[in-house]
Amino acid sequence: MTPPSAPTPMRRIASMLYRRPNFYLLLLLTPPLLWFGIIYIGSLLSLLWQGFYTFDDFTMTVSTDLTLQNFVNLFQPANYDIILRTLGMAIAVTLFSALLAFPVAYYMARCCSERMKAVFYIGVMLPMWASYIVKVYAWTLLLSKDGVLYWFASLLHLDGVVDALLQLPGIGGKTLSTSNLGRFLVFTYIWLPFMILPIQAVLERLPPSVLQASADLGATPRQTLLHVILPLAVPGVAAGSIFTFSLTLGDYIVPQLVGPPGYFLGSMVYAQQGAIGNMPMAAAFTLVPIVLIAVYLSIVKRMGAFDAL
């Protein structure tokens, strides 16, 4: 052992911090809290505050007179339609993503070898490395009248099916690339990895003995899936759905490039503040996804999705 030497300044500071853990914590937390508080919360609140400003249609200028008119305007039929359209798409994309993601996540978590799992990880994440805009543009080509999807459908003699799908009200349109169906496919394609990964994480944490116990007690594989695996996977589905739901609610690129004309919440905000310069109305619109997600989270929480976290 070396004899205790005289404390250096560094050591004196270190032991001072050790003796005052609260001060130490404060020192560590202040920079990230400032960053988070000012850059995230602060700017968001200031944006929402601008929702109370007045926009003069005539002069196209914003005045700081406070009004509730912008929020009332959200319930005008045209704006209300935008909210419903976006919400409907977000729900549809979330449900379909969960349906597609579960088997993939289950296979990754419980069935395949370590090597295969790595292949799947890369397969799921690789699309996320490519630029989002490029992928959406690529889809517009894939879905267009002379695109790969039509070509593939005609190879399989499924032209009739595609045409029949496009005739359906609400889903259809002139071509795949201008239909809600096409927009829905692109959204699902883009957000699917965000659903797969959390479900996979949850399924991987299931102890094998719990599944064996279910079989041991006489449950068929189907009963084990229904009574044990699915309920225990709910937190993962909930986490994934928060991504797919909120990302679809806020997106403003896909609605502009794929699907029928008509605004989504995101593209409406973009139009209001960019083309029109109506910052107060844009701010009012940004409140909508925040409220919808808050409602969604409270529903998910009430269903007990976070109990197991």
Partner: peptide
């Protein structure tokens, strides 16, 4: 035979209770 077709039951080392 799969486990669910056997007339035996197991007490697991980690108990394996269903947490939910």
């Amino acid at each position: 035979l799969p486990p669910y077709q056997r007339d035996v039951n197991t007490v697991f080392q980690d108990y394996a209770l269903f947490p939910h």
